Simulated scan of single mutants.
Amino acid sequence: MSLDYLQLAGTKAKGKRPQFFADSDNERLLSILMAVAGELAVTRERLDTLERLLEAKGLLSQDEIETFTPDSDQAEARGLLQQEYIARILRVVQQEKEALEEQQHCQSNNDLSEIEQELSRI
Rank of each mutant, 00 (worst) to 15 (best):
Leu8Phe: 15
Leu8Arg: 12
Leu8Val: 07
Ala9Leu: 10
Thr11Ala: 05
Gly15Leu: 03
Lys16Glu: 12
Lys16Ile: 08
Gln19Trp: 04
Phe20Met: 12
Phe20His: 15
Ala22Asn: 13
Ala22His: 07
Ser24Glu: 12
Ala35Gln: 14
Val36Gly: 08
Val36Met: 15
Gly38Cys: 07
Val42Leu: 15
Thr43His: 15
Thr43Pro: 03
Arg44Trp: 07
Glu45Asp: 13
Leu47Gly: 07
Leu47Tyr: 05
Asp48Glu: 12
Asp48Ala: 12
Asp48Gln: 13
Thr49Asn: 07
Thr49His: 04
Thr49Gly: 10
Leu50Ile: 00
Glu51Gly: 00
Arg52Val: 13
Glu55Gln: 08
Ala56Phe: 02
Gly58Pro: 01
Gly58Asn: 02
Ser61Cys: 03
Ser61Tyr: 03
Gln62Trp: 08
Asp63Gly: 03
Glu64Phe: 09
Thr67Lys: 14
Thr67Cys: 03
Thr69Met: 11
Thr69His: 03
Asp73His: 04
Gln74Ile: 00
Ala75Gly: 01
Ala77Lys: 07
Arg78Ala: 09
Arg78Cys: 06
Arg78Glu: 00
Arg78Met: 12
Gly79Trp: 03
Gly79Glu: 01
Gly79Gln: 02
Gln82Arg: 09
Tyr85Leu: 15
Ile86Cys: 00
Ala87Trp: 04
Arg88Trp: 08
Arg88Phe: 10
Arg91Thr: 02
Val92Ile: 15
Val92Phe: 10
Val92Pro: 09
Val92Asn: 05
Val93Ile: 08
Val93Asp: 01
Val93Leu: 04
Gln94Val: 12
Gln95Cys: 06
Lys97Glu: 07
Glu98Pro: 00
Ala99Asn: 04
Ala99Gly: 07
Leu100Thr: 13
Leu100Asn: 01
Glu101Phe: 05
Glu101Val: 10
Gln103Met: 10
Gln104Ala: 06
His105Gly: 01
Cys106Ser: 13
Asn109Gly: 03
Asn110Met: 13
Asp111Tyr: 05
Asp111Trp: 04
Leu112Asp: 04
Ser113Glu: 06
Glu114Asn: 14
Glu114Trp: 02
Ile115Met: 05
Glu116Phe: 11
Glu116Arg: 14
Glu116Pro: 09
Glu116Ile: 10
Gln117Trp: 13
Gln117His: 15
Glu118Gln: 08
